Simulated scan of single mutants.
Amino acid sequence: MKTSTHETYADYFDHRQEDFSQQLLCDASQVRDKIDEIHRVGNIDLFENAHKLVMYALGENTSLSSFAEKEGVAWAQHELTLSFKLEWVQSIRRTMWRFLHDYHEENKNQYGNFFELEKQVNDTIDQFLNGFFLSYSRYKDALLAAQRELVENLSAPIIPLSDRVCVLPLIGEVDEDRVETIETKTLPEIKRLQIETLIIDFSGIAQMDTQSMNRMMKTINGTQMMGCECIITGLRPQIVSNLINNDLQFDPNIITKGTLEQTVNDFFFSKQ
């Protein structure tokens, strides 16, 4: 398509932008009632962005990728429904071709190269969709990774009490997956922080199943293998009964105490 033809098409759509928006509304039935909500939630002007996409499809699209990426991030950030976006873009495509048909009906002597036009318009819109969905997915993947890391850190929050003494408070449900997370996070931290004494407080856990407890005991023994003294506090009667009934025992070098407060007081007073 020649540059002059590009400008002719662009002028045609520019002058009929309002009509285009109205026909777009009629075609995108599912999105129609969500336009104001999408603008309010994400500050996204669907009509303005539709016009931009049309202009990209009719002219140079060197910044198309950045436009698609920005759109993808915006929809991901505000958790807007992807099906609305897909219907909107496909409605833009259909409405655009109706207008191009009208253009050629009005300008029978200026057909230009229709096949080149078809390839450019559809390829541009497809490139936008690909860029949009890739950007959306990358943002969501990064968000999930950050949330996963946060959850893992909260699952095994090692709190320094001094340069060489830390406490690991366990709160909530502890299943095998969480024990694995605790092991994965704790052992490297012992080395990184050069922890000499780790106090593991069980007072926030009412119950643990046998498999999780067995795995947890191995993790605790692993701290000893790394040269870190381990002190267990806050074991509740239910957990102790579970240990007894299943013939599970801590390593003889593991120290157990009643409460975290008692342990901290005893430890620091004894060091004075």
Results as ranks from 00 to 15, higher is better:
residue 219 T to R: 06
residue 196 E to H: 07
residue 245 N to R: 13
residue 227 G to T: 00
residue 203 S to M: 05
residue 232 I to E: 04
residue 208 M to L: 08
residue 237 P to S: 02
residue 224 Q to D: 14
residue 223 T to S: 02
residue 228 C to L: 00
residue 241 S to H: 14
residue 242 N to H: 14
residue 225 M to S: 01
residue 239 I to V: 03
residue 198 L to C: 05
residue 226 M to Q: 00
residue 208 M to C: 06
residue 239 I to H: 04
residue 231 I to N: 04
residue 197 T to M: 09
residue 205 I to S: 08
residue 201 D to A: 15
residue 227 G to V: 00
residue 205 I to A: 08
residue 224 Q to P: 12
residue 201 D to Q: 12
residue 218 K to Y: 06
residue 210 T to N: 04
residue 211 Q to R: 15
residue 234 G to Y: 01
residue 220 I to R: 01
residue 247 D to E: 13
residue 222 G to T: 02
residue 219 T to H: 09
residue 197 T to L: 08
residue 219 T to N: 07
residue 195 I to L: 03
residue 237 P to K: 00
residue 237 P to M: 03
residue 225 M to C: 03
residue 221 N to M: 00
residue 205 I to N: 08
residue 233 T to C: 04
residue 207 Q to W: 12
residue 227 G to L: 00
residue 212 S to D: 07
residue 247 D to R: 13
residue 206 A to V: 12
residue 243 L to W: 08
residue 229 E to W: 07
residue 247 D to Y: 13
residue 247 D to G: 15
residue 233 T to D: 01
residue 213 M to P: 11
residue 204 G to K: 04
residue 213 M to F: 09
residue 196 E to D: 09
residue 220 I to M: 03
residue 215 R to L: 14
residue 203 S to G: 09
residue 225 M to Y: 00
residue 236 R to D: 04
residue 231 I to F: 05
residue 233 T to I: 02
residue 197 T to Q: 03
residue 223 T to P: 01
residue 219 T to Q: 05
residue 221 N to Q: 06
residue 231 I to R: 03
residue 194 Q to H: 14
residue 213 M to Q: 11
residue 223 T to A: 01
residue 235 L to Q: 11
residue 218 K to H: 10
residue 216 M to W: 05
residue 240 V to K: 10
residue 230 C to M: 12
residue 241 S to D: 10
residue 198 L to R: 01
residue 201 D to W: 12
residue 218 K to L: 10
residue 241 S to Y: 14
residue 245 N to H: 14
residue 236 R to E: 03
residue 204 G to I: 04
residue 226 M to D: 00
residue 209 D to I: 10
